[in-house]
Nucleic acid binder design. Structure first.
Ligand code: SF4
Length: 500
RNA sequence: GGCGGC
DNA sequence: GCCGCCAACATA
């Protein structure tokens, strides 16, 4: 865990300003927190889960607000409302004991999620993004005195320029502030910080740089603090990720954490035709039921944090076909494109997603691509992951891809044979049999009592067949999650429970 | 990705 | 540089 360099922060003179007579909690002097020190976990399981869930709800609400909210003010309002409901932090209301409990909850819940969300790159970047957003929100919400008190307690080493130094760099400093509306050089003070502490500002050319130092106008200090928060949290998440495997075995914590990181907003599922309403969080677990073309796209998306246009079409429509509604699709893609900024995402991708769902222009509700279309048109080029693996992969690549999927040598041979004969969809059907069908048999599903499957004609057909193999034969009474269990069974289990 | 507009 | 509009079609 990090050593808090400024650990001896206490009252300073802050008691005289802002909050007036309100006593200061030595554990949590302000509502803001850099979460440098892990809390002592003396806490019941119920409280543990409740805390985590509440914070998760807040982070998800921020995500939703940023996607839906029209302007900054509206987003702020929405976030504020959720914060008040699930993670309220009072400035001076109530007793000190109450404020202490609120801040303790904030503290603990942060660390639970930090633990739960350190596991994979995807989870880390999602958590980092929205923790920063939450921190930023609070930084804007608290009053100036409390903010200053907090920043001072951090000891970030922001040295304020003396009048003399400032005058020496006058022209350069003024030039760097040209973008600020009505900037008054005389009244502004400047901070000298290591330039790597101000990377965000440097990138946007909003500061003057000189041999390793950035000179930041004091009004931009908030950006520095947020940047620092982000750096430290990111570093800590990396550390946690490396440390996690070691506590994996003996801790009973792990299952709880796993459960948290896959928690949904608590929506209920209805079992209609196929998979019912699918949420952004369901895509991952359900990917075990995807045909090869789609799982290949899905993998590419996960490892690259991005997907080219052809793939977005093929995969996006497929997802719509499995029951992912528009708003969930937007959340899903936003989350998957973890390299993009909100702004870029909004501008470049949202329109097209909406268009695919028939919400834009001609308002056509497009059907997902069929195998025939995928195989014949729009050949994938360099950097593309769309197309049909059986058709577009080299025999070598295809063999590797199949072996990775756990197909045994003999079956791979058979499929390669079919492919050379141009029977791509038959090969795909064979894959269905040796993976989906075989697993269903092994689990004693009633629906698996067939010798072979019908030939696959459509990726969504593949998915639906695979999905239907799961639900009808629950012979073991909901105890599907055994040794070989993969994530898909969890999601399906949820539906079974919901459908009784 | 293509087409189109400023 | 900003933006809009399009493509699809299995299927019990
Ligand atoms: S045959 Fe159809 S479903 Fe199977 S991989 Fe090719 S395109 Fe996808």
């Amino acid at each position: 865990m990090f050593v808090n360099k400024g650990g001896k922060q206490r009252t300073s003179r802050a008691g005289w300003s802002g909050e007036g007579e309100v006593a200061i909690d030595p554990d949590y002097p302000t509502r803001l927190n850099f979460y440098q020190k892990a809390p002592l976990l003396e806490i019941s399981i119920e409280e543990f889960e409740q805390f985590a869930l509440d914070r998760l709800q807040v982070l998800k609400a921020i995500e939703a607000a940023q996607l839906r909210g029209r302007d900054e003010a509206e987003i702020f309002k929405q976030v504020e409302a959720v914060c008040r409901e699930r993670m309220c932090l009072s400035a001076s209301a109530g007793s000190m004991a109450i404020r202490h409990d609120e801040r303790r909850k904030d503290h603990i819940s942060h660390f639970i999620l930090r633990l739960a969300y350190c596991r994979t790159e995807d989870l880390r970047s999602w958590f980092l993004r929205y923790e920063c957003a939450l921190f930023r929100h609070r930084l804007m919400a608290v009053d100036a005195a409390e903010k200053q008190r907090f920043i001072a307690s951090l000891n970030l080493g922001h040295k304020q320029l003396s009048k003399k130094e400032k005058d020496l760099m006058r022209t350069e400093l003024m030039a760097s502030c040209a973008h600020i509306p009505n900037f008054n050089f005389e009244n502004e003070s400047f901070l000298e910080v290591n330039f790597e502490d101000a990377l965000d500002l440097v990138q946007h050319r909003r500061v003057y740089l000189r041999n390793g130092y950035a000179y930041v106008p004091a009004m931009e200090q908030m950006a520095l603090v947020i940047g620092e928060f982000k750096r430290r949290l990111a570093a800590s998440l990396e550390m946690y990720a490396k440390a996690l495997p070691r506590m994996d075995e003996d801790e009973r914590l792990m299952p709880v954490l796993l459960n948290i990181s896959r928690q949904n907003t608590g929506k209920e599922y209805t079992t209609d035709a196929v998979a019912g309403k699918v949420t952004a969080d369901d895509v991952e677990p359900l990917s075990a039921l995807f045909p090869l073309c789609m799982s290949h796209l899905h993998n590419g998306l996960r490892s690259e944090g991005h997907m080219k246009h052809g793939g977005r079409m093929q995969f996006g429509l497929f997802l719509k076909g499995i029951g992912l509604p528009l708003d969930e699709a937007i959340v899903y893609w936003r989350r998957a494109f973890h390299k993009s900024t909100d702004d870029e995402f909004q501008k470049k991708y949202v329109y097209n997603i909406r268009h695919n769902y028939g919400m834009e222009g001609k308002r056509a509700d497009y059907t997902p691509y069929s195998c025939a279309r995928i195989i014949t048109s729009n050949q994938p080029g360099a950097g593309d992951h769309h197309g049909c693996p059986f058709r577009h992969f080299s025999p070598d690549n295809l063999r590797r891809e199949l072996l990775v999927s756990g197909v045994d040598e003999a079956d791979v041979q058979e499929m390669l044979q079919l492919v050379t004969g141009g029977h791509y969809q038959v090969a795909c059907t064979r894959l269905f049999e040796v993976t989906q069908l075989a697993r269903a048999r092994q689990q004693g599903k009633a629906a698996a009592n067939v010798a072979s499957a019908e030939t696959i004609t459509h990726p969504n057909h593949y998915f639906e067949q695979a999905f239907n193999l799961m639900s009808p034969g629950k012979q073991q009474n909901g105890m599907e999650i055994e040794s070989g269990a993969n994530a898909s069974q969890h999601a399906i289990g949820k539906r079974w429970r919901g459908s009784n």
